[in-house]
Design a protein around this nucleic acid. Sequence first.
DNA 1: CAGGGTACTCACCTCCGGGTGAGTACCCCA
DNA 2: TGGGGTACTCACCCGGAGGTGAGTACCCTG
Lengths: 111, 111
Amino acid sequence: MATARTLQLDSVCPATRTLVEHVTSKWGVLVLIALADRPAMRWSELKREIPGVSEKMLIQTLQTLEADGLVLRTAHPVVPPHVEYSLTEPGREAHDLLAPLVRWAYDRATR
Amino acid sequence: MATARTLQLDSVCPATRTLVEHVTSKWGVLVLIALADRPAMRWSELKREIPGVSEKMLIQTLQTLEADGLVLRTAHPVVPPHVEYSLTEPGREAHDLLAPLVRWAYDRATR
DNA sequence: CAGGGTACTCACCTCCGGGTGAGTACCCCA
DNA sequence: TGGGGTACTCACCCGGAGGTGAGTACCCTG
Protein backbone atom coordinates (compact mmCIF):
# COMPACT_ATOMS: atom_id res chain seq x y z
CA MET A 1 0.00 0.00 0.00
CA ALA A 2 3.03 2.27 0.44
CA THR A 3 3.88 4.29 -2.64
CA ALA A 4 7.15 5.74 -3.84
CA ARG A 5 5.53 9.16 -3.61
CA THR A 6 6.17 10.87 -0.29
CA LEU A 7 2.85 12.65 -0.34
CA GLN A 8 -0.22 11.94 -2.42
CA LEU A 9 -1.91 14.72 -4.30
CA ASP A 10 -5.28 13.77 -2.89
CA SER A 11 -3.94 14.15 0.65
CA VAL A 12 -4.72 17.81 0.17
CA CYS A 13 -8.47 17.36 0.58
CA PRO A 14 -10.69 20.27 1.70
CA ALA A 15 -10.29 19.39 5.39
CA THR A 16 -6.49 19.28 5.09
CA ARG A 17 -6.56 22.55 3.17
CA THR A 18 -8.61 24.26 5.86
CA LEU A 19 -6.21 23.24 8.62
CA VAL A 20 -3.16 24.29 6.59
CA GLU A 21 -4.83 27.62 5.86
CA HIS A 22 -5.58 28.30 9.51
CA VAL A 23 -2.08 27.39 10.64
CA THR A 24 -0.27 29.29 7.88
CA SER A 25 -2.58 32.31 7.91
CA LYS A 26 -1.02 35.70 8.53
CA TRP A 27 -1.98 35.89 12.21
CA GLY A 28 -2.14 32.14 12.81
CA VAL A 29 1.61 31.88 12.27
CA LEU A 30 2.26 34.76 14.65
CA VAL A 31 -0.02 33.40 17.37
CA LEU A 32 1.60 29.95 17.24
CA ILE A 33 5.07 31.46 17.43
CA ALA A 34 4.12 33.77 20.28
CA LEU A 35 2.53 30.99 22.33
CA ALA A 36 5.33 28.54 21.63
CA ASP A 37 7.81 29.68 24.24
CA ARG A 38 5.48 30.50 27.11
CA PRO A 39 3.23 28.18 29.10
CA ALA A 40 0.32 30.63 28.72
CA MET A 41 -0.43 34.19 27.68
CA ARG A 42 -3.22 36.62 28.37
CA TRP A 43 -5.18 38.16 25.55
CA SER A 44 -3.81 41.65 26.16
CA GLU A 45 -0.32 40.22 26.34
CA LEU A 46 -0.70 38.65 22.89
CA LYS A 47 -2.10 41.90 21.55
CA ARG A 48 0.89 43.80 22.90
CA GLU A 49 3.50 41.33 21.66
CA ILE A 50 2.20 40.60 18.18
CA PRO A 51 3.07 43.64 16.11
CA GLY A 52 0.16 45.04 14.13
CA VAL A 53 -2.70 42.74 15.07
CA SER A 54 -6.10 44.31 15.25
CA GLU A 55 -8.31 43.19 18.13
CA LYS A 56 -10.73 41.64 15.67
CA MET A 57 -8.12 39.50 13.94
CA LEU A 58 -6.55 38.41 17.22
CA ILE A 59 -9.86 37.16 18.56
CA GLN A 60 -10.85 35.60 15.26
CA THR A 61 -7.53 33.79 14.91
CA LEU A 62 -7.59 32.54 18.50
CA GLN A 63 -11.17 31.28 18.11
CA THR A 64 -10.30 29.49 14.88
CA LEU A 65 -7.23 27.82 16.38
CA GLU A 66 -9.22 26.91 19.49
CA ALA A 67 -11.92 25.29 17.34
CA ASP A 68 -9.16 23.33 15.59
CA GLY A 69 -7.94 22.12 18.97
CA LEU A 70 -4.57 23.82 18.67
CA VAL A 71 -5.07 26.47 21.31
CA LEU A 72 -6.61 26.20 24.78
CA ARG A 73 -8.63 29.11 26.15
CA THR A 74 -8.92 29.34 29.92
CA ALA A 75 -11.22 32.04 31.33
CA HIS A 76 -11.12 32.96 34.99
CA PRO A 77 -14.50 34.42 35.94
CA VAL A 78 -13.14 37.34 37.92
CA VAL A 79 -14.37 40.88 37.95
CA PRO A 80 -11.90 42.36 35.48
CA PRO A 81 -11.82 39.58 32.89
CA HIS A 82 -8.81 37.29 33.00
CA VAL A 83 -8.35 34.95 30.05
CA GLU A 84 -5.33 32.84 29.22
CA TYR A 85 -4.36 31.14 26.00
CA SER A 86 -1.91 28.29 25.62
CA LEU A 87 -0.86 25.72 23.02
CA THR A 88 -2.34 22.25 23.20
CA GLU A 89 -0.16 19.29 22.28
CA PRO A 90 -1.38 19.34 18.64
CA GLY A 91 -0.79 23.09 18.69
CA ARG A 92 2.81 22.51 19.65
CA GLU A 93 3.15 19.92 16.90
CA ALA A 94 1.82 22.45 14.40
CA HIS A 95 4.31 25.03 15.62
CA ASP A 96 7.22 22.62 15.43
CA LEU A 97 6.37 21.72 11.84
CA LEU A 98 5.67 25.31 10.84
CA ALA A 99 8.76 26.88 12.38
CA PRO A 100 11.33 25.36 9.97
CA LEU A 101 9.26 26.45 6.96
CA VAL A 102 8.98 30.02 8.26
CA ARG A 103 12.67 30.13 9.08
CA TRP A 104 13.51 28.88 5.60
CA ALA A 105 11.26 31.53 4.05
CA TYR A 106 12.84 34.19 6.26
CA ASP A 107 16.36 33.17 5.27
CA ARG A 108 15.41 33.14 1.58
CA ALA A 109 13.50 36.40 1.69
CA THR A 110 16.23 38.30 3.50
CA ARG A 111 19.31 36.67 1.97
CA MET B 1 22.62 37.45 20.40
CA ALA B 2 20.95 34.07 20.37
CA THR B 3 17.62 33.99 22.17
CA ALA B 4 15.79 31.23 23.93
CA ARG B 5 12.98 31.72 21.41
CA THR B 6 13.18 29.34 18.46
CA LEU B 7 11.67 31.85 16.09
CA GLN B 8 11.31 35.59 16.46
CA LEU B 9 7.98 37.23 15.85
CA ASP B 10 9.56 39.78 13.56
CA SER B 11 10.93 36.99 11.36
CA VAL B 12 7.51 37.06 9.78
CA CYS B 13 8.14 40.24 7.83
CA PRO B 14 6.19 41.02 4.63
CA ALA B 15 8.75 39.28 2.41
CA THR B 16 8.65 36.12 4.53
CA ARG B 17 4.87 36.27 4.57
CA THR B 18 4.71 36.49 0.77
CA LEU B 19 6.94 33.44 0.31
CA VAL B 20 4.99 31.43 2.87
CA GLU B 21 1.75 32.43 1.17
CA HIS B 22 2.96 31.34 -2.26
CA VAL B 23 4.26 28.01 -1.01
CA THR B 24 1.23 27.20 1.16
CA SER B 25 -1.37 28.48 -1.30
CA LYS B 26 -4.02 26.06 -2.47
CA TRP B 27 -2.38 25.30 -5.81
CA GLY B 28 1.18 26.06 -4.73
CA VAL B 29 1.09 23.07 -2.38
CA LEU B 30 -0.26 20.80 -5.12
CA VAL B 31 2.28 21.94 -7.70
CA LEU B 32 5.20 21.38 -5.31
CA ILE B 33 3.94 17.91 -4.42
CA ALA B 34 3.33 16.98 -8.05
CA LEU B 35 6.77 18.13 -9.18
CA ALA B 36 8.54 16.54 -6.22
CA ASP B 37 8.78 12.99 -7.48
CA ARG B 38 9.49 13.60 -11.14
CA PRO B 39 12.50 15.23 -12.76
CA ALA B 40 10.25 17.38 -14.96
CA MET B 41 6.64 17.67 -16.07
CA ARG B 42 4.89 19.25 -19.02
CA TRP B 43 2.18 21.83 -18.49
CA SER B 44 -0.57 19.57 -19.80
CA GLU B 45 0.72 16.77 -17.61
CA LEU B 46 0.41 18.94 -14.51
CA LYS B 47 -3.06 20.01 -15.58
CA ARG B 48 -4.10 16.39 -15.96
CA GLU B 49 -2.57 15.18 -12.69
CA ILE B 50 -3.62 17.98 -10.35
CA PRO B 51 -7.31 17.42 -9.69
CA GLY B 52 -9.45 20.49 -10.19
CA VAL B 53 -6.93 23.12 -11.30
CA SER B 54 -8.18 25.67 -13.76
CA GLU B 55 -5.78 26.62 -16.53
CA LYS B 56 -5.62 30.14 -15.19
CA MET B 57 -4.62 29.08 -11.67
CA LEU B 58 -2.07 26.56 -12.93
CA ILE B 59 -0.28 29.18 -15.03
CA GLN B 60 -0.53 31.80 -12.34
CA THR B 61 0.84 29.47 -9.66
CA LEU B 62 3.69 28.27 -11.88
CA GLN B 63 4.63 31.84 -12.79
CA THR B 64 4.61 32.89 -9.14
CA LEU B 65 6.76 29.95 -8.06
CA GLU B 66 9.10 30.55 -11.00
CA ALA B 67 9.49 34.21 -9.99
CA ASP B 68 10.30 33.00 -6.46
CA GLY B 69 13.00 30.76 -7.90
CA LEU B 70 11.32 27.55 -6.75
CA VAL B 71 10.31 26.24 -10.17
CA LEU B 72 12.26 26.13 -13.43
CA ARG B 73 10.44 26.64 -16.72
CA THR B 74 12.07 25.23 -19.82
CA ALA B 75 10.44 26.00 -23.16
CA HIS B 76 11.44 24.13 -26.30
CA PRO B 77 10.69 26.34 -29.31
CA VAL B 78 9.07 23.64 -31.41
CA VAL B 79 6.01 23.91 -33.54
CA PRO B 80 3.48 22.48 -31.11
CA PRO B 81 4.65 24.17 -27.89
CA HIS B 82 6.66 21.99 -25.54
CA VAL B 83 7.24 23.40 -22.05
CA GLU B 84 8.61 21.60 -19.06
CA TYR B 85 8.52 22.53 -15.40
CA SER B 86 10.79 21.20 -12.67
CA LEU B 87 11.75 22.00 -9.08
CA THR B 88 14.88 24.02 -8.44
CA GLU B 89 16.98 23.18 -5.38
CA PRO B 90 15.17 25.80 -3.26
CA GLY B 91 11.92 24.42 -4.62
CA ARG B 92 12.85 20.98 -3.34
CA GLU B 93 13.75 22.47 0.03
CA ALA B 94 10.35 24.13 0.18
CA HIS B 95 8.65 20.84 -0.64
CA ASP B 96 10.63 18.93 1.97
CA LEU B 97 9.68 21.44 4.66
CA LEU B 98 6.08 21.64 3.52
CA ALA B 99 5.40 17.92 3.19
CA PRO B 100 5.52 17.07 6.93
CA LEU B 101 3.13 19.93 7.72
CA VAL B 102 0.67 18.80 5.06
CA ARG B 103 0.92 15.21 6.20
CA TRP B 104 0.30 16.26 9.80
CA ALA B 105 -2.75 18.29 8.72
CA TYR B 106 -4.01 15.36 6.67
CA ASP B 107 -3.64 12.94 9.57
CA ARG B 108 -5.41 15.37 11.93
CA ALA B 109 -8.18 16.22 9.50
CA THR B 110 -8.99 12.63 8.63
CA ARG B 111 -8.33 11.00 12.01
C1' DC C 1 -15.29 61.44 38.58
C1' DA C 2 -12.54 60.98 34.55
C1' DG C 3 -9.25 58.04 32.45
C1' DG C 4 -7.27 53.57 31.57
C1' DG C 5 -7.14 48.56 31.61
C1' DT C 6 -9.79 44.00 30.94
C1' DA C 7 -11.75 41.09 26.79
C1' DC C 8 -14.45 41.33 23.79
C1' DT C 9 -18.70 42.26 19.83
C1' DC C 10 -20.62 44.61 15.77
C1' DA C 11 -20.78 47.07 11.39
C1' DC C 12 -18.63 48.39 7.33
C1' DC C 13 -15.16 48.38 3.67
C1' DT C 14 -11.28 46.79 0.57
C1' DC C 15 -8.45 43.68 -1.83
C1' DC C 16 -7.19 39.59 -4.00
C1' DG C 17 -7.04 34.37 -4.34
C1' DG C 18 -9.58 31.64 -6.87
C1' DG C 19 -13.36 30.25 -10.27
C1' DT C 20 -15.70 30.43 -15.04
C1' DG C 21 -15.61 30.85 -19.77
C1' DA C 22 -14.08 32.46 -24.10
C1' DG C 23 -10.36 33.37 -27.43
C1' DT C 24 -5.68 32.36 -29.87
C1' DA C 25 -2.14 30.38 -33.18
C1' DC C 26 -0.30 26.49 -34.83
C1' DC C 27 -0.08 21.66 -36.02
C1' DC C 28 -1.49 16.69 -36.84
C1' DC C 29 -4.59 13.09 -37.92
C1' DA C 30 -8.81 10.98 -39.54
C1' DT D 1 -12.13 20.05 -43.29
C1' DG D 2 -12.95 19.74 -38.74
C1' DG D 3 -11.83 18.03 -34.27
C1' DG D 4 -8.31 17.61 -30.76
C1' DG D 5 -3.90 18.62 -28.56
C1' DT D 6 -0.25 22.24 -27.31
C1' DA D 7 0.33 26.39 -23.88
C1' DC D 8 -1.28 29.94 -23.00
C1' DT D 9 -4.01 35.21 -22.41
C1' DC D 10 -8.02 38.07 -21.31
C1' DA D 11 -12.34 39.56 -19.07
C1' DC D 12 -15.49 39.12 -15.50
C1' DC D 13 -17.22 37.72 -10.97
C1' DC D 14 -17.51 36.14 -5.98
C1' DG D 15 -16.41 35.18 -1.19
C1' DG D 16 -13.68 35.63 2.55
C1' DA D 17 -9.28 37.21 4.85
C1' DG D 18 -7.99 41.12 6.75
C1' DG D 19 -8.40 46.25 8.09
C1' DT D 20 -10.85 50.34 10.58
C1' DG D 21 -13.45 52.25 14.10
C1' DA D 22 -16.97 52.42 17.45
C1' DG D 23 -19.42 50.42 21.41
C1' DT D 24 -19.76 47.62 25.96
C1' DA D 25 -19.68 46.49 31.07
C1' DC D 26 -17.06 46.43 34.88
C1' DC D 27 -13.40 47.79 37.92
C1' DC D 28 -9.35 50.39 40.00
C1' DT D 29 -6.45 54.39 40.45
C1' DG D 30 -5.36 59.26 40.64
